[in-house]
Design a protein around this nucleic acid. Structure first.
Lengths: 221, 221
DNA sequence: CTCACATTCTATCGTTCGCTTGATTGTTGG
DNA sequence: CCAACAATCAAGCGAACGATAGAATGTGAG
């Protein structure tokens, strides 16, 4: 009765609103960004986002109810992951609106991001070809745990914080292509800046690992 | 100070959350659906969505602040419109998550939509070709006001309610392709069902006018 | 200049939301 | 079976949100 009397339209709008609401909180977006890297348990997510455990749990549950996440139990852990690649599309759409229409974001993007990386990013297609040709060093600047959940085959994992210390691991002869969590992850920008300052040829991969994976490109573990 | 101390990441997440929040309400989604058809003033939008005027105004203003809408003044009217085609992408992304992951929506889509239109919708590309070849009648089943804001060139406007009464306007010889507001607008589904019941060959255009326009295809006024 | 109309603003009220705390459930390893 | 740990649940709080009504602003027509 509720369904038919309120009309199909109302049901759809309410359901859609629940999905949007599920993403409409800074902490949730932080959780989603981390979950886009791969499956994680509640405690790990709470730690990495700086949230109270119970609080993180509640956010995760409500995103699960809304259909953004799915969860499975593994021993005493509850492992959450993105329900679907379409969740990435949602985040992308929000990002595109933000970069073109939100004053705060436009400012950050132009002042912070562009100054560190004036060049166009390397496309996935281009990187794939140059990997086959062996003309690049691929650098994954995410934390080790995220690297362990999947990375571009052949990539070297050097978290940004360790970069200066570990420059020796990177040959100067080839161009370095760095990537991290996604289009708005600052690590890759910072890495490219640091590498250039050290005399490397360095560029950034477009987006991050989640998009690489969603594109159906190979992921190593 | 606020900006740099909280970190770039936090700023981005907050801005993104504001955008998601701006869409996270059933009334707002209804407003967006109507605005996707074209520019409208506050009173018209309030009427068509059944909202209190002041309430509609407030929703519109907060969506404007978030960057989903833009507004211009024309005489005593304030005309709102979608800020950007990327807002359509956002709605699409929400819809895709809903159809694959939200129980209520899956039920509606399979029970209501599929039963009325088992066939695949006509793609925009296909319709464009068949329009040139003259082998279809294009039917716009939206209300006259929306038709007036732009429609597929050559389309005949027959709001769903008037369809039975005006079947004479539609030649039986050609296949009819009906469209309305978007992928979840029920009018086109109902029109196709009614036409088939009346012995027509009828199909639905994928999505609706907003996507046609966003694709860069010609729109008549 | 005034009137009519479109819209926004202001104040208010009830509801929902997010976060914290402490208790509870569920699972593994000893 | 018990100890240790992961996660959820339950209650309570303050803040933010959505709706409404009435006042105020802005604009054009006469």
């Amino acid at each position: 009765m509720t369904e038919s009397s309120r009309g199909v339209k109302a049901i759809l709008h309410e359901s859609f609103a629940e999905i949007a609401k599920a993403a409409a909180h800074p902490h949730r977006l932080a959780l989603l960004e981390h979950l886009a890297q791969g499956e994680r348990n509640v405690d790990a997510l709470a730690t990495v986002t700086g949230l109270n455990l119970a609080n993180a749990s509640q956010h995760l549950q409500s995103m699960r109810r809304a259909g953004l996440l799915s969860a499975r139990r593994d021993g005493k852990f509850t492992l959450y992951r993105l329900a679907d690649d379409s969740v990435l599309d949602l985040l992308d759409a929000i990002g595109r609106i933000a970069t073109s229409n939100a004053a705060a974001v436009k400012e950050v993007v132009s002042s912070y991001f562009n100054e560190r990386d004036a060049m166009e990013p390397v496309t996935r297609r281009e990187l794939r070809q140059r990997m086959k040709a062996g003309t690049v060093t691929v650098l994954d600047v995410r934390p080790a745990e995220e690297f362990a959940l999947g990375h571009v085959p052949g990539a070297i994992n050097v978290p940004v914080g360790d970069l200066k210390r570990r420059l020796a691991d990177l040959p100067r002869s080839k161009e370095v292509v760095a990537y991290c969590r996604g289009p708005y992850c600052v690590f890759a920008f910072e890495a490219v800046a640091a590498l250039r300052a050290a005399g490397y040829r360095a560029r950034r991969l477009e987006d991050g690992l989640p998009h690489w994976r969603a594109d159906g490109l190979p992921v190593a573990l």
